[in-house]
Design a protein around this nucleic acid. Structure first.
Lengths: 202, 202
DNA sequence: CTCATTCTGTACCGTTTCGCATAAAATAAT
DNA sequence: ATTATTTTATGCGAAACGGTACAGAATGAG
Protein backbone atom coordinates (compact mmCIF):
# COMPACT_ATOMS: atom_id res chain seq x y z
CA UNK A 1 0.00 0.00 0.00
CA UNK A 2 2.27 2.78 1.22
CA UNK A 3 6.06 2.57 0.93
CA UNK A 4 7.95 3.07 4.13
CA UNK A 5 9.12 6.63 4.30
CA UNK A 6 12.45 7.70 5.60
CA UNK A 7 12.73 9.83 8.68
CA UNK A 8 10.83 9.72 11.92
CA UNK A 9 7.41 8.13 11.49
CA UNK A 10 4.24 9.91 12.41
CA UNK A 11 2.91 9.19 15.85
CA UNK A 12 -0.69 9.72 14.74
CA UNK A 13 -3.21 8.57 12.17
CA UNK A 14 -4.10 11.40 9.81
CA UNK A 15 -7.58 10.03 9.26
CA UNK A 16 -8.35 9.90 12.96
CA UNK A 17 -6.95 13.38 13.38
CA UNK A 18 -9.21 14.70 10.63
CA UNK A 19 -12.20 13.15 12.35
CA UNK A 20 -11.33 14.82 15.62
CA UNK A 21 -10.78 18.15 13.91
CA UNK A 22 -14.10 17.80 12.15
CA UNK A 23 -15.89 17.37 15.47
CA UNK A 24 -14.51 20.66 16.66
CA UNK A 25 -15.26 22.55 13.45
CA UNK A 26 -18.73 21.05 13.44
CA UNK A 27 -19.59 22.55 16.80
CA UNK A 28 -17.74 25.85 16.55
CA UNK A 29 -17.52 26.65 12.86
CA UNK A 30 -14.35 27.47 10.97
CA UNK A 31 -13.78 31.03 12.15
CA UNK A 32 -14.86 30.13 15.66
CA UNK A 33 -12.25 27.42 16.05
CA UNK A 34 -8.72 28.27 17.12
CA UNK A 35 -5.60 26.28 16.40
CA UNK A 36 -5.20 25.84 20.13
CA UNK A 37 -8.59 24.18 20.33
CA UNK A 38 -7.73 21.97 17.37
CA UNK A 39 -4.41 21.15 18.92
CA UNK A 40 -6.04 20.11 22.17
CA UNK A 41 -8.75 18.07 20.44
CA UNK A 42 -6.36 16.21 18.19
CA UNK A 43 -3.64 15.95 20.82
CA UNK A 44 -1.23 17.24 18.24
CA UNK A 45 0.83 20.34 18.67
CA UNK A 46 0.42 23.07 16.14
CA UNK A 47 3.57 22.38 14.12
CA UNK A 48 2.49 18.80 13.59
CA UNK A 49 -0.92 19.94 12.42
CA UNK A 50 0.71 22.44 10.15
CA UNK A 51 3.14 19.93 8.74
CA UNK A 52 0.49 17.34 8.02
CA UNK A 53 -2.37 19.46 6.75
CA UNK A 54 -1.16 22.98 6.05
CA UNK A 55 -2.80 26.02 7.51
CA UNK A 56 -6.17 26.21 9.21
CA UNK A 57 -8.16 26.65 6.03
CA UNK A 58 -6.48 23.67 4.36
CA UNK A 59 -7.25 21.55 7.40
CA UNK A 60 -10.85 22.69 7.36
CA UNK A 61 -11.14 21.94 3.65
CA UNK A 62 -9.80 18.47 4.33
CA UNK A 63 -12.46 17.83 6.93
CA UNK A 64 -15.14 19.13 4.57
CA UNK A 65 -13.95 16.89 1.79
CA UNK A 66 -13.92 13.88 4.08
CA UNK A 67 -17.47 14.62 5.15
CA UNK A 68 -18.56 15.01 1.56
CA UNK A 69 -17.04 11.70 0.58
CA UNK A 70 -18.53 9.87 3.55
CA UNK A 71 -21.91 11.41 2.88
CA UNK A 72 -21.86 10.17 -0.68
CA UNK A 73 -21.08 6.69 0.57
CA UNK A 74 -23.96 6.81 3.01
CA UNK A 75 -26.23 8.11 0.28
CA UNK A 76 -25.25 5.44 -2.21
CA UNK A 77 -25.89 2.78 0.39
CA UNK A 78 -29.26 4.23 1.36
CA UNK A 79 -30.31 4.32 -2.29
CA UNK A 80 -29.79 0.58 -2.76
CA UNK A 81 -31.71 0.03 -6.00
CA UNK A 82 -32.99 -3.35 -4.93
CA UNK A 83 -35.34 -1.54 -2.58
CA UNK A 84 -38.42 0.48 -3.50
CA UNK A 85 -38.02 4.20 -4.02
CA UNK A 86 -40.14 5.02 -1.02
CA UNK A 87 -37.91 2.96 1.19
CA UNK A 88 -34.82 4.47 -0.38
CA UNK A 89 -35.91 7.99 0.41
CA UNK A 90 -36.93 7.09 3.93
CA UNK A 91 -33.49 5.58 4.45
CA UNK A 92 -31.76 8.67 3.12
CA UNK A 93 -33.58 10.92 5.56
CA UNK A 94 -33.28 8.49 8.41
CA UNK A 95 -29.52 8.22 8.03
CA UNK A 96 -29.16 11.92 7.67
CA UNK A 97 -31.02 12.43 10.92
CA UNK A 98 -28.84 9.86 12.65
CA UNK A 99 -25.91 12.08 11.77
CA UNK A 100 -27.60 15.42 12.34
CA UNK A 101 -29.06 14.60 15.73
CA UNK A 102 -25.79 13.56 17.27
CA UNK A 103 -24.53 16.34 19.48
CA UNK A 104 -23.88 17.33 23.04
CA UNK A 105 -25.88 20.49 23.61
CA UNK A 106 -28.02 21.00 20.54
CA UNK A 107 -28.14 18.73 17.53
CA UNK A 108 -25.36 19.58 15.15
CA UNK A 109 -27.18 19.33 11.87
CA UNK A 110 -25.19 18.98 8.69
CA UNK A 111 -21.51 19.80 8.87
CA UNK A 112 -21.48 21.38 5.43
CA UNK A 113 -24.69 23.37 5.64
CA UNK A 114 -24.09 24.27 9.26
CA UNK A 115 -20.57 25.59 8.94
CA UNK A 116 -19.46 25.91 5.32
CA UNK A 117 -22.31 28.24 4.35
CA UNK A 118 -20.98 30.80 6.80
CA UNK A 119 -17.56 30.86 5.14
CA UNK A 120 -18.77 30.41 1.58
CA UNK A 121 -18.74 34.10 0.72
CA UNK A 122 -15.26 34.95 1.92
CA UNK A 123 -13.55 31.67 1.14
CA UNK A 124 -13.96 30.67 -2.45
CA UNK A 125 -12.59 27.19 -1.97
CA UNK A 126 -15.09 26.51 0.79
CA UNK A 127 -17.85 27.67 -1.50
CA UNK A 128 -16.60 25.32 -4.18
CA UNK A 129 -16.67 22.32 -1.86
CA UNK A 130 -20.13 23.27 -0.69
CA UNK A 131 -21.41 23.72 -4.21
CA UNK A 132 -19.89 20.48 -5.41
CA UNK A 133 -21.29 18.62 -2.44
CA UNK A 134 -24.81 19.84 -3.10
CA UNK A 135 -24.51 19.03 -6.78
CA UNK A 136 -23.16 15.54 -6.19
CA UNK A 137 -25.96 14.85 -3.77
CA UNK A 138 -28.58 16.08 -6.23
CA UNK A 139 -27.02 14.04 -9.00
CA UNK A 140 -27.09 10.80 -7.08
CA UNK A 141 -30.72 11.26 -6.14
CA UNK A 142 -31.61 12.24 -9.68
CA UNK A 143 -30.11 9.00 -10.96
CA UNK A 144 -32.38 7.08 -8.61
CA UNK A 145 -35.37 9.12 -9.76
CA UNK A 146 -34.64 8.27 -13.37
CA UNK A 147 -34.49 4.61 -12.48
CA UNK A 148 -37.76 4.95 -10.61
CA UNK A 149 -39.42 6.40 -13.69
CA UNK A 150 -38.11 3.59 -15.86
CA UNK A 151 -39.47 1.08 -13.38
CA UNK A 152 -42.81 2.78 -13.11
CA UNK A 153 -42.34 3.72 -9.46
CA UNK A 154 -43.20 7.28 -10.39
CA UNK A 155 -45.87 8.61 -12.76
CA UNK A 156 -44.96 8.91 -16.39
CA UNK A 157 -43.86 12.39 -17.30
CA UNK A 158 -42.25 12.98 -13.90
CA UNK A 159 -39.20 15.17 -14.11
CA UNK A 160 -36.33 13.46 -12.30
CA UNK A 161 -34.33 16.68 -12.11
CA UNK A 162 -37.12 18.54 -10.35
CA UNK A 163 -37.99 15.67 -8.06
CA UNK A 164 -34.36 15.31 -7.03
CA UNK A 165 -34.08 18.98 -6.12
CA UNK A 166 -37.27 18.84 -4.10
CA UNK A 167 -36.04 15.77 -2.26
CA UNK A 168 -32.79 17.58 -1.56
CA UNK A 169 -34.69 20.62 -0.38
CA UNK A 170 -36.27 18.57 2.38
CA UNK A 171 -32.79 17.39 3.25
CA UNK A 172 -31.50 20.96 3.48
CA UNK A 173 -34.40 21.86 5.67
CA UNK A 174 -33.66 18.95 8.00
CA UNK A 175 -30.07 20.14 8.19
CA UNK A 176 -31.03 23.67 9.16
CA UNK A 177 -33.81 22.74 11.53
CA UNK A 178 -31.71 20.19 13.36
CA UNK A 179 -29.15 22.87 14.06
CA UNK A 180 -31.89 25.20 15.22
CA UNK A 181 -32.74 22.64 17.87
CA UNK A 182 -35.89 21.04 16.45
CA UNK A 183 -36.87 17.78 18.11
CA UNK A 184 -36.36 14.39 16.57
CA UNK A 185 -40.11 13.96 16.27
CA UNK A 186 -40.48 17.21 14.37
CA UNK A 187 -37.70 16.29 12.01
CA UNK A 188 -38.98 12.79 11.44
CA UNK A 189 -42.37 14.20 10.57
CA UNK A 190 -40.80 16.46 7.98
CA UNK A 191 -38.84 13.56 6.58
CA UNK A 192 -42.04 11.55 6.25
CA UNK A 193 -43.69 14.48 4.51
CA UNK A 194 -40.81 14.55 2.08
CA UNK A 195 -41.19 10.90 1.27
CA UNK A 196 -44.92 11.32 0.72
CA UNK A 197 -44.38 14.40 -1.40
CA UNK A 198 -42.18 12.47 -3.82
CA UNK A 199 -43.81 9.06 -3.73
CA UNK A 200 -47.37 9.99 -2.91
CA UNK A 201 -49.14 9.31 0.35
CA UNK A 202 -48.81 5.70 1.41
CA UNK B 1 -42.29 60.39 19.64
CA UNK B 2 -39.06 60.44 21.59
CA UNK B 3 -38.40 62.92 24.35
CA UNK B 4 -35.24 64.89 24.06
CA UNK B 5 -32.63 63.23 26.16
CA UNK B 6 -30.12 65.07 28.23
CA UNK B 7 -26.45 64.87 27.47
CA UNK B 8 -24.67 64.87 24.17
CA UNK B 9 -26.89 63.60 21.39
CA UNK B 10 -25.91 60.69 19.25
CA UNK B 11 -24.24 61.56 16.00
CA UNK B 12 -25.62 58.45 14.29
CA UNK B 13 -28.85 56.64 13.59
CA UNK B 14 -28.93 53.32 15.42
CA UNK B 15 -31.11 51.78 12.75
CA UNK B 16 -28.76 52.73 9.95
CA UNK B 17 -25.83 51.46 11.99
CA UNK B 18 -27.53 48.13 12.49
CA UNK B 19 -28.09 47.84 8.76
CA UNK B 20 -24.43 48.50 8.06
CA UNK B 21 -23.35 46.02 10.70
CA UNK B 22 -25.68 43.45 9.24
CA UNK B 23 -24.08 43.78 5.84
CA UNK B 24 -20.71 42.93 7.33
CA UNK B 25 -21.97 40.01 9.39
CA UNK B 26 -23.85 38.74 6.36
CA UNK B 27 -20.69 38.43 4.31
CA UNK B 28 -18.26 37.34 6.99
CA UNK B 29 -20.32 35.58 9.62
CA UNK B 30 -20.32 36.37 13.32
CA UNK B 31 -17.03 34.82 14.34
CA UNK B 32 -15.35 36.02 11.17
CA UNK B 33 -16.17 39.65 11.81
CA UNK B 34 -13.98 41.78 14.06
CA UNK B 35 -15.01 44.85 15.95
CA UNK B 36 -12.50 46.79 13.89
CA UNK B 37 -14.28 45.77 10.72
CA UNK B 38 -17.60 46.72 12.23
CA UNK B 39 -16.19 49.99 13.41
CA UNK B 40 -14.94 50.80 9.92
CA UNK B 41 -18.18 49.78 8.25
CA UNK B 42 -20.39 51.74 10.59
CA UNK B 43 -17.97 54.65 10.89
CA UNK B 44 -18.36 54.40 14.61
CA UNK B 45 -15.51 53.82 16.99
CA UNK B 46 -15.65 50.82 19.20
CA UNK B 47 -16.73 52.53 22.41
CA UNK B 48 -19.72 54.04 20.61
CA UNK B 49 -20.70 50.65 19.30
CA UNK B 50 -20.24 49.20 22.71
CA UNK B 51 -22.25 51.93 24.37
CA UNK B 52 -25.15 51.66 21.96
CA UNK B 53 -25.43 47.93 21.46
CA UNK B 54 -23.32 46.13 24.02
CA UNK B 55 -20.74 43.56 23.08
CA UNK B 56 -20.29 41.87 19.75
CA UNK B 57 -22.79 39.14 20.39
CA UNK B 58 -25.47 41.59 21.48
CA UNK B 59 -24.89 43.62 18.34
CA UNK B 60 -25.12 40.51 16.21
CA UNK B 61 -28.32 39.45 17.93
CA UNK B 62 -29.75 42.89 17.22
CA UNK B 63 -28.99 42.55 13.52
CA UNK B 64 -30.53 39.08 13.49
CA UNK B 65 -33.65 40.32 15.18
CA UNK B 66 -33.96 43.18 12.72
CA UNK B 67 -33.64 40.78 9.83
CA UNK B 68 -36.24 38.49 11.31
CA UNK B 69 -38.69 41.32 11.76
CA UNK B 70 -38.14 42.68 8.26
CA UNK B 71 -38.48 39.20 6.81
CA UNK B 72 -41.81 38.75 8.49
CA UNK B 73 -42.98 42.04 7.04
CA UNK B 74 -41.92 40.98 3.58
CA UNK B 75 -43.61 37.64 4.07
CA UNK B 76 -46.86 39.14 5.26
CA UNK B 77 -46.90 41.45 2.29
CA UNK B 78 -46.14 38.66 -0.17
CA UNK B 79 -48.96 36.57 1.28
CA UNK B 80 -51.58 39.22 0.55
CA UNK B 81 -54.75 37.13 0.91
CA UNK B 82 -56.53 38.95 -1.90
CA UNK B 83 -54.25 37.08 -4.30
CA UNK B 84 -54.43 33.39 -5.21
CA UNK B 85 -52.27 30.99 -3.23
CA UNK B 86 -50.15 30.18 -6.25
CA UNK B 87 -49.33 33.82 -6.72
CA UNK B 88 -48.67 34.23 -3.02
CA UNK B 89 -46.12 31.47 -2.97
CA UNK B 90 -44.45 32.71 -6.12
CA UNK B 91 -44.17 36.15 -4.54
CA UNK B 92 -42.66 34.72 -1.38
CA UNK B 93 -39.93 32.93 -3.29
CA UNK B 94 -39.39 35.80 -5.67
CA UNK B 95 -38.88 38.28 -2.86
CA UNK B 96 -36.62 35.92 -1.02
CA UNK B 97 -34.45 35.58 -4.10
CA UNK B 98 -34.32 39.34 -4.52
CA UNK B 99 -32.73 39.45 -1.09
CA UNK B 100 -30.58 36.34 -1.40
CA UNK B 101 -29.10 37.20 -4.77
CA UNK B 102 -27.84 40.57 -3.71
CA UNK B 103 -24.12 40.37 -3.10
CA UNK B 104 -20.75 41.44 -4.38
CA UNK B 105 -18.81 38.26 -4.97
CA UNK B 106 -21.23 35.40 -4.52
CA UNK B 107 -24.88 35.70 -3.65
CA UNK B 108 -25.32 36.06 0.07
CA UNK B 109 -28.28 33.81 0.63
CA UNK B 110 -30.27 34.17 3.82
CA UNK B 111 -28.66 36.08 6.65
CA UNK B 112 -30.08 33.78 9.28
CA UNK B 113 -29.47 30.46 7.59
CA UNK B 114 -26.14 31.58 6.21
CA UNK B 115 -24.59 32.87 9.40
CA UNK B 116 -26.70 32.02 12.46
CA UNK B 117 -26.61 28.28 11.85
CA UNK B 118 -22.85 28.33 12.31
CA UNK B 119 -23.12 29.92 15.75
CA UNK B 120 -26.27 28.12 16.84
CA UNK B 121 -24.48 25.36 18.73
CA UNK B 122 -22.16 27.49 20.82
CA UNK B 123 -24.41 30.51 21.31
CA UNK B 124 -27.72 29.57 22.78
CA UNK B 125 -29.29 32.96 22.17
CA UNK B 126 -28.42 32.80 18.50
CA UNK B 127 -30.01 29.40 18.31
CA UNK B 128 -33.13 30.80 19.94
CA UNK B 129 -33.44 33.59 17.41
CA UNK B 130 -32.88 31.15 14.59
CA UNK B 131 -35.44 28.72 15.93
CA UNK B 132 -38.00 31.42 16.54
CA UNK B 133 -37.46 32.84 13.08
CA UNK B 134 -38.04 29.51 11.40
CA UNK B 135 -41.13 28.88 13.51
CA UNK B 136 -42.61 32.30 12.84
CA UNK B 137 -42.07 31.84 9.15
CA UNK B 138 -43.70 28.43 9.19
CA UNK B 139 -46.59 29.76 11.21
CA UNK B 140 -47.34 32.57 8.82
CA UNK B 141 -47.32 30.26 5.83
CA UNK B 142 -49.43 27.73 7.66
CA UNK B 143 -52.06 30.37 8.30
CA UNK B 144 -52.24 31.04 4.59
CA UNK B 145 -52.50 27.32 3.88
CA UNK B 146 -55.44 27.03 6.24
CA UNK B 147 -57.14 29.88 4.46
CA UNK B 148 -56.44 28.22 1.13
CA UNK B 149 -58.10 25.04 2.31
CA UNK B 150 -61.15 26.96 3.49
CA UNK B 151 -61.36 28.65 0.14
CA UNK B 152 -60.92 25.46 -1.80
CA UNK B 153 -57.60 26.48 -3.27
CA UNK B 154 -56.18 23.21 -2.02
CA UNK B 155 -57.69 19.73 -2.04
CA UNK B 156 -59.88 18.78 0.88
CA UNK B 157 -57.95 16.86 3.48
CA UNK B 158 -54.74 18.76 2.83
CA UNK B 159 -52.67 19.21 5.94
CA UNK B 160 -51.74 22.88 6.29
CA UNK B 161 -48.99 22.11 8.78
CA UNK B 162 -47.25 19.71 6.44
CA UNK B 163 -47.70 21.91 3.39
CA UNK B 164 -46.25 24.87 5.24
CA UNK B 165 -43.15 22.94 6.27
CA UNK B 166 -42.63 21.72 2.73
CA UNK B 167 -42.99 25.22 1.38
CA UNK B 168 -40.48 26.39 3.96
CA UNK B 169 -38.15 23.57 3.02
CA UNK B 170 -37.91 24.93 -0.51
CA UNK B 171 -37.15 28.29 1.02
CA UNK B 172 -34.34 26.85 3.13
CA UNK B 173 -32.94 25.16 0.08
CA UNK B 174 -32.97 28.44 -1.83
CA UNK B 175 -31.13 30.05 1.06
CA UNK B 176 -28.40 27.45 1.10
CA UNK B 177 -28.03 27.14 -2.64
CA UNK B 178 -27.81 30.86 -3.17
CA UNK B 179 -24.92 30.99 -0.77
CA UNK B 180 -23.28 28.08 -2.56
CA UNK B 181 -23.28 30.21 -5.69
CA UNK B 182 -26.14 28.72 -7.67
CA UNK B 183 -27.34 30.86 -10.57
CA UNK B 184 -30.51 32.88 -10.55
CA UNK B 185 -31.98 30.61 -13.21
CA UNK B 186 -31.31 27.52 -11.14
CA UNK B 187 -32.89 29.06 -8.08
CA UNK B 188 -35.91 30.36 -9.96
CA UNK B 189 -36.48 26.89 -11.36
CA UNK B 190 -36.44 25.46 -7.84
CA UNK B 191 -38.85 28.15 -6.70
CA UNK B 192 -41.20 27.29 -9.53
CA UNK B 193 -40.98 23.62 -8.59
CA UNK B 194 -41.89 24.56 -5.07
CA UNK B 195 -44.97 26.43 -6.19
CA UNK B 196 -46.05 23.52 -8.36
CA UNK B 197 -45.41 21.05 -5.58
CA UNK B 198 -47.84 22.86 -3.29
CA UNK B 199 -50.40 24.11 -5.77
CA UNK B 200 -50.13 21.47 -8.47
CA UNK B 201 -48.70 21.97 -11.90
CA UNK B 202 -50.17 24.97 -13.64
C1' DC C 1 28.32 3.94 12.90
C1' DT C 2 27.21 8.10 10.43
C1' DC C 3 24.33 10.88 8.01
C1' DA C 4 20.30 12.58 5.83
C1' DT C 5 15.46 12.91 6.58
C1' DT C 6 11.26 13.43 8.86
C1' DC C 7 8.49 14.29 12.84
C1' DT C 8 7.82 16.21 17.77
C1' DG C 9 7.78 19.66 21.36
C1' DT C 10 8.92 24.08 23.27
C1' DA C 11 8.95 28.48 22.82
C1' DC C 12 8.43 32.46 20.54
C1' DC C 13 7.04 36.23 17.05
C1' DG C 14 4.25 39.87 15.39
C1' DT C 15 -0.49 40.82 14.81
C1' DT C 16 -5.13 41.01 15.89
C1' DT C 17 -8.64 40.50 19.07
C1' DC C 18 -12.21 42.35 22.42
C1' DG C 19 -13.15 45.32 25.74
C1' DC C 20 -12.46 49.36 28.60
C1' DA C 21 -10.35 53.56 30.98
C1' DT C 22 -10.04 58.17 30.41
C1' DA C 23 -10.61 62.66 28.91
C1' DA C 24 -12.75 65.92 25.78
C1' DA C 25 -17.06 67.46 23.59
C1' DA C 26 -21.91 68.42 23.31
C1' DT C 27 -26.27 68.90 25.13
C1' DA C 28 -30.32 69.76 28.91
C1' DA C 29 -31.42 71.22 33.44
C1' DT C 30 -30.80 74.59 36.99
C1' DA D 1 -22.78 80.40 33.83
C1' DT D 2 -22.59 76.14 36.18
C1' DT D 3 -23.59 71.43 36.64
C1' DA D 4 -25.12 66.84 35.46
C1' DT D 5 -25.43 63.71 31.84
C1' DT D 6 -24.46 61.42 27.70
C1' DT D 7 -21.66 60.64 23.57
C1' DT D 8 -17.22 60.79 21.14
C1' DA D 9 -12.31 59.99 20.38
C1' DT D 10 -7.76 58.39 21.61
C1' DG D 11 -5.45 54.93 23.03
C1' DC D 12 -4.28 51.32 26.25
C1' DG D 13 -3.84 46.47 27.76
C1' DA D 14 -4.20 41.75 28.52
C1' DA D 15 -5.23 37.88 26.09
C1' DA D 16 -5.76 35.12 22.07
C1' DC D 17 -4.62 34.52 17.43
C1' DG D 18 -2.20 32.08 13.34
C1' DG D 19 2.01 30.71 12.14
C1' DT D 20 7.00 29.35 12.57
C1' DA D 21 12.06 28.84 14.17
C1' DC D 22 14.71 25.78 16.32
C1' DA D 23 16.51 22.01 18.78
C1' DG D 24 15.89 17.29 19.86
C1' DA D 25 14.14 12.59 18.79
C1' DA D 26 13.23 8.72 15.78
C1' DT D 27 13.72 6.39 11.75
C1' DG D 28 15.95 4.53 6.93
C1' DA D 29 19.97 4.65 3.84
C1' DG D 30 24.68 4.00 3.08
Amino acid sequence: MSEKKRGRPRAFDAKVTLEKAREVFWDRGFAGTSLDTLSAATQLNRPSLYGAFGDKEALYLDTLEGYRAESMDVLADALDPSLPLRENLARVYQRALAIYLHGETAARGCFLIGTATAEAIQHERVREVLSRSLDDFDGEIEKRMKLAIERGELPDGSDPHTLARLASAVMHSLAVRARAGDSRETLEALAQSGVDMICGKA
